Structures are given as C-alpha cells and as structure tokens.
Amino acid sequence: MKVIRSKDFTAAQAWGSELIAAMDSATVRLHWTDQPYRWHVNDGEEVFAVMDGVVDMHYRIAGNEQVATLHAGDLFFAGAGDAHCAHPRGAARILVIERAGSD
C-alpha cells in the first residue's frame, strides 16, 4: 500500500510520470506537466483525470477540433481511435488510466 499526494508530485520533465499500478492490461500513472502533449490516438480506451491545475483538452469529432476545459476533479474519456491533445495552463497533475503500453 502507499499514499500518493498528487499535489506534491513533480517530475524532471513535462509529462514525467509515476507508475501507481499495473492491473491486468491497464496502467495507472500520475503525470506532471507544464507543456502540451502531442496529438495522438490511443489503441485502447483512456481515462484522464485532472488532479490539480487546469487543462484544455483538444479533441476531434469528424475532423473538427473541439476544446473542453478541465479543472481539478474533472475527467475526460477517450475511446480507442479518438484523436486528442492535452494543453495544461501552467503546471498540472493528471491521473491517466490506459491500456498497458499505450502512449
């Protein structure tokens, strides 16, 4: 067992993470970032939970870009094949649950 205080977590570089758990075929990671991630499409489902900070989640529906502003406590679900890109406003801590090996 362990207690993780997400507000205290930092990483040496943007999107650095700590593996919290590897369960069956999924991983749970706590990420710290102050930089946008790249546009990507996961090969499986992904749950993205903002623990601290504000993140603008860009995503595409039928080729049209949309943006949802996520605050601490908000969740974003991306299904397999959904294009998305996270843009934090300053430093943010994000819990990501996804298929093991996804990026």
Rank of each mutant, 00 (worst) to 15 (best):
L70G: 03
I61A: 04
L70M: 10
D56G: 05
D43Q: 03
F48R: 02
V28C: 09
W15V: 11
D34M: 01
V47P: 05
Q35A: 15
N64Y: 10
V54L: 00
M57P: 05
D34N: 11
W32V: 01
A26W: 14
A72G: 12
Y37N: 12
S17L: 01
V55P: 04
D43R: 00
A68N: 09
F48Q: 07
H58T: 00
H40W: 03
F48K: 09
T33Q: 01
V50H: 08
V50R: 01
R60Y: 03
L30S: 04
G63E: 04
A72W: 02
L30K: 02
E18Y: 11
A62H: 08
D52Y: 00
D52M: 04
D52E: 13
R29S: 12
R29Q: 08
S25I: 10
G16V: 06
G16W: 06
F48G: 10
D74K: 12
I61C: 07
A22V: 12
Y37M: 14
W15M: 13
A72I: 00
D43Y: 03
V67T: 14
D74Y: 13
A26Y: 13
E46R: 09
H31F: 15
R38P: 11
G16I: 06
T69W: 05
M57K: 06
A72S: 12
T27E: 15
W32I: 01
L70E: 06
A49Q: 14
G73T: 08
R29A: 00
R38I: 13
A49V: 15
H58E: 07
Q66Y: 12
R60K: 15
Q35N: 11
N64E: 15
A62R: 10
I20C: 06
D34S: 10
G63R: 02
E18H: 11
L30H: 06
V28M: 13
T27V: 15
Q66M: 14
N42Y: 00
A22W: 09
Q35K: 15
R60L: 11
T27I: 15
G53H: 02
G63K: 02
I20E: 04
V41C: 00
G44S: 02
L30P: 02
A22R: 13
V55E: 06
I61Q: 09
E45C: 07
A21S: 15
